[in-house]
């Protein structure tokens, strides 16, 4: 018995040591990013490496932000991300309601269509979609980036559906007997109890929109319209040796996501692990 306890203790401390080591390795690049962002150019390129600098060269931040139209691009990114989140949550939940809560013959076959479109690679549609949006005159507008969110992205519809299936049918059935319309049941009964999945989809969609690169790259040609993803790469080409400025810009770009992550931590985990119970 004592031996078993000891053994468990040993395996636990081994895991502990491994976890600590892995965490250190994972966190080091973060430290490197922040450290580099407060170094002078000279401190960046000295050997041996300085693992700590004082005073902090915080002016890197103000310089980095003034070299690109930062605030403008931040505004664009925030606006795009917000609209994407709104569209994704709205369309995802509405479509999922039709697939999970309305008893009609189309729900099964359309669910399979959903799964298929979830797996279809964007590589086939990338070019013709561009041509379509160009013919619509949508190049250099935000429409090609926003509209897709409002028509239900399969992955998020799937997440909503998984959640809706777990809501007891009696809840909506009771309302139906009372004569409530489907729209009413969706808005007044299902959505209010779906806060966890709304939050999960919201944070996942936000991260995706915030970090999106290829879409803005293709559809937005004017720096004033750019998102931070594009702004940061422009930075790379213009000031490619000023790593401290680039790291400062990268820190500012990353920070909002880190904040969102710490606030909505459990929703990320939940949203991702919805995958594990395919129904």
């Amino acid at each position: 018995m004592r031996k078993a306890k000891l053994l468990r203790g040993a395996s636990q401390s081994t895991s502990y040591a491994l976890l600590l080591a892995t965490s250190a390795v994972v966190l080091l690049p973060f430290y490197w990013m922040v450290l580099s962002s407060v170094k002078t150019n000279h401190q960046l390129f000295t050997t041996p490496v300085q693992w700590w600098v004082w005073p902090l060269h915080l002016s890197n931040y103000s310089r980095a932000l003034s070299l690109i139209p930062f605030w403008r691009q931040l505004g664009n990114t925030v606006m795009l991300s917000a609209l994407t989140v709104i569209g994704t949550v709205l369309s995802g939940s509405v479509v999922a309601y039709g697939l999970a809560k309305v008893d009609w013959p189309g729900r099964k076959p359309l669910f399979w269509l959903l799964i298929v479109t979830m797996l279809l690679p964007g590589v086939v549609t990338l070019v013709p979609t561009y041509v379509i949006f160009r013919d619509l005159g949508w190049i250099n507008t935000y429409l090609p980036l926003i509209i897709p969110a409002f028509v239900g992205s399969p992955y998020y519809v799937f997440l909503f559906r998984q959640f809706f299936l777990r809501i007891p049918e009696s809840l909506s059935e009771a309302a139906r007997i009372d004569g409530a319309s489907e729209l009413h049941i969706y808005a007044r009964i299902i959505m209010p109890v779906s806060r966890p999945v709304i939050a999960s989809v919201g944070v996942l969609a936000f991260v995706q929109a915030w970090t999106e690169y290829l879409g803005p790259l293709i559809y937005l040609n004017q720096p004033a319209q750019w998102t931070l993803s594009l702004g940061l790469t422009a930075f790379l080409t213009k000031y490619s040796v000023e790593w401290n400025l680039m790291m400062a810009a990268a820190v500012v770009f990353t920070l909002p996501l880190i904040v969102v992550f710490f606030v909505g931590n459990k929703y990320f985990v939940k949203g991702i692990s919805f995958i594990t119970d395919v129904g």
Binding site: T22, S23, V26, L27, P29, F30, W32, M33, S36, V207, W210, T211, Y213, L228, S229, L232, T233, L236, W243, M246, M247, A250, F253, T254, L257, I258, V260, F261, F268, V269
Partner: peptide, 18 residues
Amino acid sequence: LYLPQMVPTVASAILWMW
């Protein structure tokens, strides 16, 4: 361990170049 997933793709690319 999940944190790196939160770094925007572009930022992580630039970070790793450095």
